[in-house]
């Protein structure tokens, strides 16, 4: 056990954790921030994506101790403090980009980063950026549509032939 400290959604937190504690376990079990999910154990589904020092990372594939001193944002920290959802979150609701909601936190975290780096992505770029986020409910249609809409692009013509 050793102490680890980091800033999560603007709040300084610390804990005494074992070397093999995963970042996602620290978030979910020690901090009881359960918005970040675990959907696989091979680092593929992306339900656990959080931002570490401004970069999207799979929190199930990073040790808590590796985040010593880091600034972390989780799904709980994406909306404004007054509860107003972010552009990406709002677009997911507006375009029905989620069903069961389990993959959604990871989708939002990945999409948020994508749009920071590429503010007006093409459909192909959105799909490529979602390589590491698996959704079983939506067939991806409305997720891709929501992300394009969040980027300010017109989605009214999508598949409406």
């Amino acid at each position: 056990m050793a102490k680890v400290s980091m800033t999560v959604n603007g709040r300084a937190v610390s804990g005494d954790v074992a070397g093999n504690r995963l970042l996602v376990e620290f978030l979910r079990e020690d901090l009881r921030m359960t918005g970040t999910h675990v959907g696989c154990d091979t680092s593929q589904c992306g339900a656990c994506v959080v931002h570490v020092n401004g970069k999207a990372v799979k929190s199930c594939t990073m040790l808590a101790h590796e985040a010593e001193g880091a600034t972390i944002t989780t799904i709980e920290g994406i909306a404004s403090p007054d509860g107003t959802m972010s552009r990406v979150q709002q677009a997911f609701q507006d375009h029905h980009g989620l069903q069961c909601g389990f993959c959604t936190p990871g989708m939002v975290m990945t999409a948020t980063k994508l749009l920071e780096q590429n503010p007006t992505p093409t459909e192909a770029e959105v799909r490529h950026a979602l390589e590491g986020n698996i959704c079983r409910c939506t067939g991806y249609h409305n997720i891709v549509k929501a992300i394009l809409a969040a980027s300010g692009q017109d989605v009214s013509k999508i598949a409406a032939e």
């Binding site: 680092s43 992306g46 994506v49 570490v52 970069k55 999207a56 990372v57 799979k58 594939t61 990073m62 990945t110 980063k113 994508l114 950026a129 979602l130 390589e131 590491g132 986020n133």
Partner: peptide, 9 residues
Amino acid sequence: IGDPAVRNR
């Protein structure tokens, strides 16, 4: 390689 999150680590 992998996906965006994997490429960051």
